[in-house]
Write a protein that binds this DNA or RNA. Sequence first.
RNA 1: GGCCCGGUGGCAGAGUGGUUAUGCAGCGGUUUGCAAAACCGUGGACAUCGGUUCAAUUCCGGUCCGGGCCUCCA
Length: 449
Amino acid sequence: MSGLRLFNTLAKEKEPFTPLSINHVGIYACGPTVYDRIHVGNARPLVLFDILVKLLRYHYKDVTYVRNITDVDDKINKRAMELGMSINSLCETTINDFHDDCVALNVSSPDVEPRATEHISEMIEIIETLLAREHAYETSGHVLFSVLTMPEYGKLSGRSMHEMIAGARVDIAPYKKDPADFVLWKPSTPEQPGWDSPFGRGRPGWHIECSAMAKKYLGEEFDIHAGGLDLIFPHHENEIAQSCCAHNTQYMARYWIHNGYVTVNGEKMSKSAGNFTTVSDALTKHRGEAIRYALMAAHYRAPLDYSDVQVSESKLALDRLYRVAGDASPSLPPSEFIEILDDDLNTPKALAFLHQKVKDFNKGEKQVAGEIKACTELLGLLKYSSKEWFQSEAYKNELSSLEIEQQIEERRIARINKDFLKADDIRQKLASSGIELFDNSDGTSWRRK
RNA sequence: GGCCCGGUGGCAGAGUGGUUAUGCAGCGGUUUGCAAAACCGUGGACAUCGGUUCAAUUCCGGUCCGGGCCUCCA
């Protein structure tokens, strides 16, 4: 049991979380389409659901976290063509980059990371079931899902069939029985990637992979399905339609969790808008952990405006935590902290709580250092020792630790001789190289700014 | 055109029907050879107009502004 409450997009309100089985929680998150490096907006759900999974593991013995990789998609085909690469090597390269970015952001690996291309037969199986149950039809080499066969269609996104038809801004493919019908399988030309199937050589539509992989690893009905706000429609709506109609279930997932957008100057960060910063670019200016902190500094359903200032301030806030708890050994997170996260994953409030604890520490309550450390483990922060955090050579062309320590020794001697002019000169020179010195009772320590 | 979300102090960003959020920045002080850290104190806020209420930033409605989805998108 836990006091976890989550905002469920299906219910459009916060609900107490109760898993389908007592000790096991299954959670599925939509992962990247591997045609290009991920940007900061893509990183937000990775970080947030990483925290959600850590919280779930705190409460429940057995958690299965599935995060897929989409490695068949027309964007991939197009990009591979542009780059003159094989589709395969584009995917492999991008997946490696993706994993590097995850490590930099301290995002743990999911329990299963299935790839779409390795689950084609499972997809075909679902499509055949949908055809047999007359929820789908074949036309012009395509297999389409028939939306009219599912009365509940539109429940997740809160829109009616009528609205969608009225609001349609897109040319409707002439072979569709209904404008809202969507592709389960489409034919491939000889150059395009394709698989033999009962419906001819072709490739899957966008949504079917998640239905197939979620079923394989989590079952026909499972606990949580997560993703970005922009996946609610059509992606998640269509997953629900396929899965529920194929499996004859009321639910695909019981709880649907969606994170808000990362924005830039108030507007959604996106590839198509061109206003994005890739994670690897951000890492040339900022520590991964500072980016991670910035991504949890706003509530997960609210928009988060990304800027260098925001990340720099996150770094300062992290410094404060590191000073107190960087080298502490973790005790247990206080129940108050758990309650804050249990309330729909209120990470900003959780961070405020930790800063309050830092104050308590500084006023003499030294035992809270271990509590803070335990809390930061749940958030995936304070991964390093204080020394690593403050002294790591993050950027090139910096003074080596040895050089810095030689300077500090020179300054120590100058100070003993009361040659403060020289001492200040050394401080100044180091400061201009981004090295700060701190004189304590037991000597001088330093850090990189 | 349809549907949805939001507007909090200099900035970021929680929260609440009547009480200090928190971080960064500012101001005054303590401490320090200098500097930093730390501590003490301090200024500054709830878009706007109505309504409900003993009391509203917090609930309800209008207005203005911003953003999003309806098409690939985390």
